[in-house]
């Protein structure tokens, strides 16, 4: 594969980086990233990955664009209200960069479809807003041996960690089981500043770019936390739990499980 002049110009800021170069750009163009959740985190992640020239993006989301989404979900615009989020996101991505092929799933990611969905991708971004989905994505990625970026945001706080097979802990090492429905607030109930989604979703995109290019050090073995009010980033070292039910020594979870979603997350 050789670059067109237009690609050389479009991706010049990537290629000019010693760590990326033409080879890294080709890896990006051949790269496949699945973004689960085309919302607060998925919007900036998808846009930066599309802009960087990640050639194949998958988007999964069951919702339609709502006016209350636009405060942070910058991949959607006012005229997209009412459209399926994956369709609205696909249109934005195609307008941003026609090099990118977009595959969409308009629907919920479930224990039944998650494994076949992630199978074709190199890296997965968890941009979901609820714990059943986060545990489902974690378990499926561990079982299928797929690297992924976990993130969560609420109010003025965000956190993320990267899982790479056989390196460091998985999300379930940190949190062995999801909290009961409605025991812990999600950002729908508690609020969040849009730029928080931008900061954390962009960091997820950065992890995907690094992974695809094979450069730098992934955020494995540390949970990066961000507090916007004190403007503090902290890297908390975390180690694998031998008793982890999915990636531990004697796993008891050998296939993805659906947990019941909290009632308020079932409706838009």
């Amino acid at each position: 594969m050789s670059f067109t002049d237009e690609q050389l110009e479009r991706y010049s800021r990537n290629i000019i980086l010693k760590e990326v170069g033409g080879k890294g750009q080709k890896k990006l163009l051949n790269g496949r990233v699945l973004i689960i959740g085309a919302g607060g985190l998925g919007a900036p992640a998808a846009m930066y990955l599309a802009a960087a020239g990640v050639g194949h993006l998958g988007l999964a989301d069951a919702d339609r664009v709502d006016l209350s989404n636009l405060q942070r979900q910058i991949i959607h615009t006012t005229s997209d209200v009412g459209l399926p989020k994956v369709e609205s996101a696909r249109l934005t991505i195609k307008a941003l960069n026609p090099d990118v092929t977009v595959q969409t799933l308009e629907g919920l990611v479930t224990a039944e479809n998650v494994s076949s969905l992630i199978k074709d991708y190199d890296f997965i971004i968890d941009g979901t807003d609820n714990f059943p989905a986060k545990f489902l994505i974690n378990d499926a990625c561990v079982i299928e041996g797929k690297p992924f970026s976990h993130a969560g945001i609420i109010r003025f706080q965000g956190q993320l960690i990267t899982y790479i097979p056989h390196q460091g802990p998985c999300y379930r090492c940190l949190f062995p089981a999801p909290p009961p429905p409605d025991a812990v607030p999600t950002c729908r109930q508690a609020g969040v500043i849009g730029a928080m989604a931008g900061v954390i979703g962009s960091l997820q995109a950065m992890e995907a770019v690094k992974y695809l290019c094979g450069i730098g050090k992934p955020l494995t073995g540390s949970l990066l936390t961000y507090d916007a009010l004190s403007m503090e980033f902290r890297k908390i070292k975390v180690t694998k739990r031998a008793t982890c039910p999915v990636c531990g020594d004697n796993p008891t979870i050998v296939q993805p499980i659906d947990y019941e979603a909290p009632s308020c997350d079932l409706k838009p």
Partner: peptide
């Protein structure tokens, strides 16, 4: 000592 908290937001 570090405390790790559930953080669930992102999509909705």
């Amino acid at each position: 000592v570090e405390f790790l908290y559930f953080m669930g937001g992102g999509r909705g």
